[in-house]
Design a protein around this nucleic acid. Sequence first.
DNA 1: TATTGTTATACTCTATAACTATA
DNA 2: TATAGTTATAGAGTATAACAATA
Lengths: 148, 148
Amino acid sequence: MGSEPAPVLTSVGYLLLKAGVHMHAVFDESLSALGLTGREFLVLSFVRSEEGLSQQDLSRRLGLDPTIIVGLVDSLEDRALVSRARDPSDRRRYLLSLTSAGDDLQRRAEAAARRAEAEFLDGLGDAERSRLRALLHEVMRHRLPWLP
Amino acid sequence: MGSEPAPVLTSVGYLLLKAGVHMHAVFDESLSALGLTGREFLVLSFVRSEEGLSQQDLSRRLGLDPTIIVGLVDSLEDRALVSRARDPSDRRRYLLSLTSAGDDLQRRAEAAARRAEAEFLDGLGDAERSRLRALLHEVMRHRLPWLP
DNA sequence: TATTGTTATACTCTATAACTATA
DNA sequence: TATAGTTATAGAGTATAACAATA
């Protein structure tokens, strides 16, 4: 019985799941030299893209509980990478923005992540990477509403 | 500054990571009705594919610490889905196999997972799904050594 | 000496509930 | 009444270290 892998083990879904886990590890590894986790890098990237984001907004973007965001932003604020300012039109909210150090670090982190991604995808040519990106974009478009 | 998303947020790597996380959640959700986690389903699937697998083998396949496998197999054995037999040629090892109930449940779980996958990929046509599978297989081939 | 499986334990990550300040 | 942010805390998931049995 069974020298063939069960169908699930060669399915799109399983390959997608495993590729995601590996990509996550590769991102974290590539960012550790800059003192960032993948998650912290994403916070910097979202805040750069949409300055004045609130912690609630960030919570939805990252798919994390708002209580997690508190510590995440605390840590980045302690390192003077992100700053909080009260929203004058709704003083419950914070408007988050990058400091110049945060802006600088985000750029370097983005370059590191891009190199790591390129290495991870080294089995694919440029056209294949574009094709993969288009397919994933189509699948995820309505699940990540902030995508263009 | 920045009404464009930071490049990382539209990159292949990030889309891959997020698609993996969503696929994971969709698998878990689809299997919960059968009383299985995604991880338990994978154990059943690997054991079916390679009967006589040891717990160490499973540890490598799943990328989990061997101490995690103990509880995982315990739980499946308690439910009479998997059985342990000592390897006569190396009595330190267990040879794992599916019971007939385990075999039956694995089949039903595989059908459920396949339906969930199909729904997750509903933005793609059949040819696009095949293309996605081929691209992911190419990327993951040397990272998942048991793949054909 | 090294490896397989096991237990105990400590550590990290996460969500829940309860609070405050604002709306 | 409802929402944004915060704190404390309990639960789940994880790896590390130490062990017994076997090689």
